[in-house]
């Protein structure tokens, strides 16, 4: 069974993560320095989440921006994969190599987002706890 039945719950978590992260001036600066527009596409359940770092503020669009935009990178994955990623429990390179995450666009530019992603792990897990979803937290797990 997938971690999330309702993608709106995931949208709420991720929006909260970015809201929290952007209160840190250093992280905010690094995100804006990337000047990236990234589209995350999810399956099972379906959905998408956009992160726009091109302007003066980082904007997020749960479900899509509602207008036509051309992203710099698109990353497509199962929502479970995304959840494991934000819990800090996914080998990103391995997921790209094995096809668990399909990526289009500029990987080097995506690397610019890594300093933003690292602190996001803890924020995401705290957000799960705050919402009473700690049972969804993926901690260190053994290989199958």
């Amino acid at each position: 069974m997938p971690y999330f039945q309702d993608i709106q719950v995931f949208y709420g978590l991720l929006t909260g993560v970015f809201d929290a992260l952007m209160k840190d001036p250093q992280i905010r600066r690094k995100a804006l320095d990337s000047k990236l527009l990234v589209r995350f596409v999810y399956r099972n359940p379906e959905g998408e989440f956009w992160v726009d770092c091109r302007g003066d503020e980082v904007k997020v669009y749960p479900g899509g921006p509602g207008e036509e935009m051309t992203p710099d990178a698109v990353m497509t994955m199962e929502l479970d994969t995304a959840h494991r990623f934000w819990c800090g429990q996914l080998n990103l390179l391995g997921a790209l190599s094995s096809g668990e995450i399909e990526a289009e666009g500029s990987m080097p530019r995506l690397l610019k987002m890594l300093p933003v992603i690292k602190p996001a792990y803890d924020v995401y897990k705290n957000m799960l706890r705050e919402k009473g979803l700690e049972n969804l937290i993926v901690e260190e797990e053994e290989e199958d």
């Binding site: 429990q89 996914l90 080998n91 390179l93 391995g94 668990e100 260190e140 797990e141 053994e142 290989e143």
Partner: peptide
């Protein structure tokens, strides 16, 4: 893969 790094199993 992908493999988890911090396990020896």
């Amino acid at each position: 893969g992908p493999y988890k790094g911090m396990t020896s199993k």
